[in-house]
Amino acid sequence: MIGAFLAEWVILRRRSLILSSFGPLLFFTFVGTVFAILGVDEPGGNRGPFGPTSGIEQLSSAGGLTLGLESSSTFIGLIILSVFAVNLAREYSNGTIRLLLVSEPRRARLLAGILLALGAFTAIAVVLAGILSIALSFAMAPGQGIPTGEWATSDGIFGAVATIGRTIAATLVWGLIGAMIVMVTKSSAAAIATGAGGLLIFPTMLRQVADGVTDRFPDAVLRAFLVGGNDALSGSTAALMTAAYGVLCLALLFTIFLRRDITD
């Protein structure tokens, strides 16, 4: 498994991949944080996929430090879904999966190593996004009259670390959803289309006609988990459902990969 992890890392450390994934990820974190800080004047405002804006009371609290990161989380999730999907689908479309399996025929170890490497890549990306969001929040808050005293307390710091941890976990589930769709379809395009269309746009449309139906959809569950629970789902329910989505994706991934003939 360590061999598979290190081998995948040779691919992930490519400059082009780092630029094409970290670039948009940091850009959306930047935009989400700017929207969150500037939205202080109109609390409850709708910023679309970036979520509702928060008032000064919420922003100046200990948890306000990472509101920018939280509002960017859906975009971060989609980008990581794409990274998982493109990397896994490429192994099938290039035929490199054959060579990987000839070198490491223990399929479970190979897949576990690849997923661990992608997970480490995700963790680094989210930590960088968190650092950017926190730095930007500190830089912009005084200009908007947002007190930052609570942010620098131990509650603020631990809260920020916890939010980054939850963002990593939620983003990993996004990635696993992408990997699972690729494992079924062998197509990164299908995974990204399903991720963006099926998991984001479709629930948004459904919500217009039947509110509450989509509360247990992946996007809603992961959002609820990220903020430690909301009106629709308690923190513990959201955490359980997030774990359930992750386990379900992993089970499908491994089951298909262990059983499928490699004819590509």
């Binding site: 691919i11 490519r14 054959r98």
Partner: peptide, 13 residues
């Protein structure tokens, strides 16, 4: 060691 059909390589590397 094995080579299976067309050379499957990582073209970006």
């Amino acid at each position: 060691g094995a080579l299976i059909e067309s050379p499957a390589l990582y073209k970006g590397l």
